Each structure stands twice: as C-alpha cells, then as structure tokens.
Amino acid sequence: MLRPEHCLRLLPAATPAFVGASAPFSCPLPGGGAIRLRHPRARTPRLRGEPSSVMRASAGPDAVASAPEMPQREVVRALAEQAVARLGPRLLPSAVPDDVAEFRNGAGNAVGSLDVRRGAPGSSIDFMLQSSLHCKVPNGAIDITSILIFLNCMTDAPHFLLELIQGSPTSIVVVLDLLPRKDLAFHPDYLQKYYENSRMDEQRAKIDELPQVRPYRSPSLFVRCACSPTAVMVSIDCGQGGEGTLEEIVRGQLAMVAKEVLQFWLDCCADSTTKMDNTERDFLLKRDQIVRSKSIEVDLTANLPMMFDPDVSSRVISEIRKAFGVQEA
C-alpha cells in the first residue's frame, strides 16, 4: 500500500510507474536483545522448492539472478520464524506454485518472491504472507520486503503489517502497524486495549527519535486512514555515505521494535477470540474485504503488470487474491 513518490523517478522507461507492487496493501525469541541476523553477504534462500523455469529464463546483461541479501530481508525472515514458532500447527504449509514462489520479468531486471501460509481450520489466523521484490533501475535498485499476518472473523483483533521499501543504499521507507479493524474513535475501548495499554506509541517513539528519521506521508489517503495512530510510518535517510548507518539502524532499532510489536501481537491478538453478534461480524467482514480489495486494486492490478509480463503478473495476483479471499471483479 505504499507509494513512495521519490522512487518513481528511478524506474526505467519500460516500467513507468511502480507502487509497492510486491506488497499487497501492498517461538518467541529468548531474551530482550535484538533479532540475530545472518551476515549481510549470506545468500538469500528460496522460500520453498527449487528454482522455477521462470527464474531460469534467459535475460539481458542487467539481469539479476536473485534478490540480493539485504538487512531488511533478514529482519522479515526473523519475524516470520518468530511467528511460525509461536503459531505452529495453526499455520498450514505453503501451497504457492513454484512459478509464483519466485518470478522475474522477461528483461530479467526485476525478480520477486511470494509465500503464503493459510490458517488451519479452527484457527483465528486467516493467512501469513511474505513477499519481496527487487528491481534494478538506472541509478541503482528498488527493493520491497513485507510480511503481513491477517486474522479471520473469530476475532476483531488487529492485523500485523511490516513493509519496507528501499529506494537507495542510504534510505528506506518503513510502515509497521497493527492494522485496526474497527473505527477507533467509535470504539475507545478497542483503542485503549490494543494501542494505549500496549504502549504501541512508545514503540513508535523509539524509531521517531532517531536523527535520521523523518515522517513518511503516503500520497494515498486510503493508506493513511487504514493505519492506526501509533503506526510507524517513516523515511530513514542516512545521507551520502550512510550505507553502514542504515544497516545498523535496520538491524538494531528497527529490528528490535518490529520484534516487540510482533511479540505483543502474538501474545494479545493471535490467540484472541471475540464474541460478536451477526451484525458485528458482518460489518467486520465487510470492512476487511474493503481493505483487501482496495489494496489489490491500488498495489497490484494497476502496477504489477508494468513490471512483469502479463502471464507472470496474472499468476501472482491470482495467488494473492486467493489468500485475501477476494474474487476478481
């Protein structure tokens, strides 16, 4: 669901627009330390299976064989492991086809990956989705990494979202939030339970207080109204020569805050059930469907085909629609 306008100018003429196409909005760790990350030069493992024929397709001189290892990928991978260890049998194995688990465009300058694990029957988990996209552009590359975990109508607790867009080696846009599923002004008890008592604002402040951080204001009013008032929505810009500083922030403060927000979500949201009458449940389902449908409309159907061949983008969008429970209009 992010649309960082500063990234649009970087795209080659063949891909005139790009709006977060990879992201569809687009065991508790011991101790209190930061998430332990692999060495930044370690090779990124595939989400599942062997490289598909799409990945093996020939490409031009600017082709990328796979998305490079980056600190934000390690953060998301560690969060996914944290969630899977806690949720365990409440998550079904991934059933994403190989040609969607990893995919590339015909020119070979853009690669993506998608992994979706649905919730087991009787679980409050609807699905957990991990996605990434790496696109080479004339002045560098754009990299998007995200994880979201959506709940079903057994509870009205918030969804979990982390989305990271890196448009240069020294800057990154971050959105970390517990996506509310109710109107917070109309439901002050919901606001207090999930955002005030949980001290989510303190987590946001840990990022906001960094000198390299500036507020990020999405150009999409839908995105801005869909997020909570405690959302981390920032641009981290470390300036010329600040690659090392950015890596330290991503591995340090950002990883720590994301871990703590996810831990709260696992403790207080993932296991919750909510007693609702039919009217309340119907309204919750309707609201969820609007958020999902709008995110697909904004992020995917309008933009993914600009970066990938029609057959590739169609397969990816189809799998995300399936996960979201949204039929094509």
Rank of each mutant, 00 (worst) to 15 (best):
A85S: 15
S66G: 13
F186S: 11
P215K: 11
I165W: 07
K294H: 07
R36A: 13
D282E: 04
M306F: 02
S94Q: 15
D309R: 04
W265G: 00
Q212G: 02
N197V: 03
A101M: 11
T245N: 06
V96E: 13
S26Y: 03
V250E: 05
V223Y: 10
I144Y: 10
A65K: 12
R77W: 15
A255V: 00
A157C: 11
V54L: 15
V175C: 13
Q263S: 07
S146M: 04
A205L: 11
V137C: 12
V257S: 00
L304H: 03
C268E: 04
E319P: 01
V257P: 00
S26R: 07
A255G: 06
A110R: 09
L79R: 09
R86A: 14
G32I: 03
N139I: 09
R38Y: 05
T273V: 01
D98G: 08
E243I: 06
Q263F: 00
D126G: 06
I125V: 14
A42S: 15
R181I: 03
L2Y: 02
Q327H: 01
G241V: 03
G239T: 04
G244M: 05
A141H: 12
K136T: 08
L176G: 02
V54I: 13
A85P: 10
R251Q: 05
V111K: 09
T44P: 09
S228Y: 09
R224P: 10
L11Q: 11
S113D: 14
V174T: 06
A120Y: 08
D237I: 03
A107G: 14
I147H: 05
R73P: 04
R214P: 01
S123L: 07
V116T: 07
S146Y: 06
V261I: 02
A302S: 09
G60K: 13
Q327W: 00
D189T: 08
N109A: 01
V223R: 05
V173R: 06
R321M: 02
L304E: 07
F283D: 02
V96W: 14
S132R: 12
A67T: 11
A42M: 09
Q82V: 11
S272R: 04
Y194A: 08
R46H: 11
L114A: 10
D126M: 05
D267S: 02
M154K: 12
S293F: 01
N303Y: 07
P158T: 07
L266H: 01
G325N: 03
R315P: 00
V298S: 00
V291S: 06
L221C: 08
R315Y: 01
C225L: 13
R36E: 13
R73T: 15
S66F: 15
P121L: 04
K275Y: 00
Y216F: 15
I236V: 06
N105H: 13
V116N: 08
V223M: 14
P158L: 06
L221A: 10
L133F: 13
L176K: 03
I142D: 11
H187L: 03
S22Q: 07
A14Q: 12
K182R: 15
E248D: 05
I317T: 05
R86M: 12
K182Y: 02
E163K: 05
A157F: 06
Q289H: 08
G33V: 01
K259L: 01
S94F: 14
